[in-house]
Amino acid sequence: MAPILFTRGAPSLDIIDQEGLRDAAQQAFTKDPGGTFAYGTSVGYVPLREWIAEKHGVDVNQVLVTNGSMQADAFLFELLVSPGDDVVVEAPTYDRTLLNLRQRGAKVTAIDLQTDGIDVDAFQTLLESGTRPSLAHIIPNFQNPAGYTLSAEKRARLLALAAQHDFVLFEDDPYYEVRFEGTPLPTMLSQDENNRVVYASSFSKTMCPGIRCGYLVGPADVIAKVQKIATNTYISPNMVAQSIVNEFCRSGRIDQSVATVRVALRERKDALVNALKRELPDAVYTAPQGGYFMWVELPGVSIEKLFPVAKEHGVEFVKGSDFLLEGGDNAMRMAFSGVTPEQIDEGITRLATAVRSL
């Protein structure tokens, strides 16, 4: 029995534009072999940097392209977070973010995530109590792991709080393009009038995970400091990958790729919701409008006990407790991006059998 994996937040091979990536690679190698095969500079492949700047309506010196958005995160944390610094995150939040911040010795405060984003009232209360975070990490669209989206009202309030209390609002936004329902909301970056937002995104979710290409957009002085860290880290990032991404974006194939991914993700989300309704009617969740993940709670079920039993039944997920400083024992993250609707249906059937066996 082949395992069905709800574990990885990545598009499956069948929805990746393999032909388009091959064409983009050929164009990159042919059009600009010098720029593609050389070391380059620490800000990234210059034409791609220019494309990103144009996309976000910013000056090119506000952009830095990295080897994946996780490296962008790590560079920003290295610049802004020192041991003992207060940092605010969502609860739950991406497990690697928690790991990185704790390794830096940050004092992490996790504020509850609601279905329309972080509890801004609780955040404001924390700030008014005297806590002075150097940074607040927010995943605004189809949050990893919960799948929730930050409302327009809360975006405006966070921008005001960042300006008032002088902290960096880190808008970590790799899922923005993969909305399959509802109306897109403007980024906080596009509404920032006080230079408090640093924005990160990635091409892994719209092109392919293996491309490992992400970027930061922010105030020019912040990006210049991050550039120094990048220079000392690797001289330059992967020029071959970034040149391919540049050709893929400029050819328009990126738009086709995003459209394909959106259609597939909506089908997979629907399959997950329908299977849960049928097999686990007591499950608690909010169906996302985009992205790769859904946060599922099973009242009265210990996920710690369920996890190994589910694995024996041929289905795997990520425990909710991995994304929290404490709690989450009845929750799990279900990634529906890398499995077909048929696999989802079978996987939830197996999961329900495992739950009943407890």
Rank of each mutant, 00 (worst) to 15 (best):
E297W: 00
E297K: 03
E297R: 05
E297L: 04
E297N: 02
L298Q: 03
L298T: 00
L298C: 00
P299L: 05
G300C: 04
G300S: 06
G300T: 09
G300K: 06
G300R: 03
V301A: 05
V301G: 04
V301E: 12
S302L: 05
S302A: 09
I303F: 00
I303E: 00
I303C: 01
I303Q: 01
E304V: 03
E304F: 04
K305D: 15
K305H: 12
K305R: 11
K305G: 12
K305W: 06
K305P: 01
L306F: 11
L306V: 13
F307M: 09
F307R: 04
F307P: 02
P308N: 12
V309P: 13
V309G: 15
A310L: 08
A310H: 07
K311H: 12
K311I: 14
K311Y: 07
K311A: 15
E312K: 15
E312L: 15
H313A: 15
G314A: 14
G314D: 15
V315D: 10
V315Y: 09
E316G: 01
E316N: 03
F317A: 01
F317D: 02
F317R: 02
V318F: 02
K319P: 07
G320L: 04
G320E: 11
S321M: 11
S321W: 10
S321L: 07
S321Q: 06
S321Y: 13
D322I: 03
D322L: 11
D322N: 09
D322M: 12
D322T: 06
F323D: 11
F323C: 11
F323H: 14
F323A: 12
F323M: 08
F323R: 03
F323V: 07
L325T: 10
L325V: 05
L325H: 05
L325W: 01
L325S: 09
L325C: 04
L325Q: 13
E326T: 09
E326F: 04
G327N: 06
G327C: 07
G327I: 03
G327A: 05
G328E: 13
G328I: 07
D329A: 02
N330F: 02
N330H: 12
N330A: 13
A331S: 08
A331R: 01
A331T: 04
A331H: 00
M332I: 04
M332D: 09
M332Q: 10
M332C: 10
M332L: 15
R333W: 02
R333M: 14
R333K: 05
A335M: 04
A335I: 00
F336G: 03
